[in-house]
């Protein structure tokens, strides 16, 4: 399995080598898509983790036990409304109904709470109105 998640590190833990443990002790592949530490020494990283489901669960539990918060990636796909031409092409590509055409107006709407960040729409949208923000 492969999954993207957001890790939030409180200031007390930002110095610890979590990726190292995830790889070494839990057999997980960790791909860091984005990472930053703010002036308050809080860290945020978007990572793609792949490996066995059980290893993944154990790895997550390990991170949580060390005070790392795991956030879902839900808010990360952004619909740039002014770039959207309201064509509707994304509606058949989006697997969850997060991007839908309202009928009869034919207006396109984005329901971010339904988005599972599969990123299919990033490719399918001709005007590049869908963006991934990490």
């Amino acid at each position: 399995m492969k999954k993207k998640i957001v890790l939030y590190f409180p200031p007390t833990v930002t110095e610890q080598p979590f990726t190292y443990y995830l790889i070494k002790d839990y057999n997980l592949m960790v791909n860091i898509l984005k990472a930053d530490i703010n002036p308050h020494k809080e860290g945020r990283a978007v990572v793609e983790i792949s490996g066995k489901e059980t290893d993944f669960q154990n790895g997550i539990e390990f991170l949580q036990s060390r005070g790392v918060k795991i956030l879902p990636l839900e808010q990360e796909i952004v619909w740039v409304e002014e770039r959207c031409t309201q064509c509707g092409a994304c509606s058949v590509i989006c697997p969850t109904g997060a991007l839908v055409v309202e009928r009869p107006s034919m207006h396109v709407q984005f329901y971010s709470e339904k988005c599972i960040v599969c990123e299919h729409c990033l490719q399918a949208c001709p005007s590049r109105a869908m963006e991934a923000h990490y």
Partner: peptide
Amino acid sequence: TASFSSYPG
């Protein structure tokens, strides 16, 4: 079905 032409447009 999906469209490429924007009906609202």
